[in-house]
Amino acid sequence: MTAFLGRSLIQKTITLFLVSVVSFLIIHLAPGEPSQIDPLNPKFSPEMVERMRQEFHLDKPLHIQYLLFYRDLFSGRIVSWRDNLPVLNKIGERFLNSLPLFIVGTLLTWTFSFPVGIRSAIRRDGPFDKTTTFLAYVLISIPGFFFAYILIILVVTQLHVPVIGMYSFGIDTASPMVRFMDRVWHLVLPSVLGATGGIAVLSRYVRSQMLEIIGQDYVRTARAKGLPDDAVYYRHALRNALLPFVTMFGLILPGLIGGSVIIESIFSWPGMGRMAYEAILARDYPVILTLNFITAVLVLVGTLISDLLYMVVDPRIRL
């Protein structure tokens, strides 16, 4: 157990180091430099550019830049190239904005996928299974932004509620109840959109996992013992079918940043995904690299958590 923890910590640290090197190289070896981003801007005189280059260590060789960057990152001194504000504070603020979207989306995904997937597996090839299967394929295949527009048109024209942004402009003076409902309405569409793709994929996965388990010998044994169908499906089959999802539970963490770029752009939601998009547009390297680093940490922590959870739920695994 301790050996496993130690080994995987070392392994993950090495992976993290490699990720930091690779992302640093990708960004710095690409043609162009932030100092050249807007050569026509009168504020960027040659002296200005030179000063900027010095300030951000761009005049140093790459490996020194790398060391300086990660020193700054770990000491929390890293600042954005765009507005000189500390990156970690900016990210913290955006993180709090993304959090409600993420939580509601994840809850929706996990609460809908399992009942749907299990039901279609148990009643395989029945009308429910066929409908949900086709719907799932449609939801997987529809471009997110197109779907978002359809939903926006529907909601705005039919329900007459505001959906863009985190809250309506000038709502501060309204009563608390109105303000609360306003927040809820703004939250609904982006989180539903964020969840639909997840529901489609996850429910398919639950279904195939469940089907696989239902075909196992021990499920037949459970039937041979004369257990009622509910006990056969929900105790014997489900318990085994759930094992791989424990792994996935650790892997939803990185979804905090990755999955939300398009949705947050459409809804002008000031979250992490939109921040990443803006940083890429402005070539704000510190922000991009920091976001990347945090994501990598989340991925690695996620896999570690899922490994540990797996050990808890599967009696066959003892490390």
Partner: peptide, 15 residues
């Protein structure tokens, strides 16, 4: 470890 869409976006934006 890289979120794929974010990575693609970054590289495409730089090139």
């Amino acid at each position: 470890c890289f979120p794929s869409f974010f990575l693609i976006l970054t590289v495409v934006a730089l090139l």
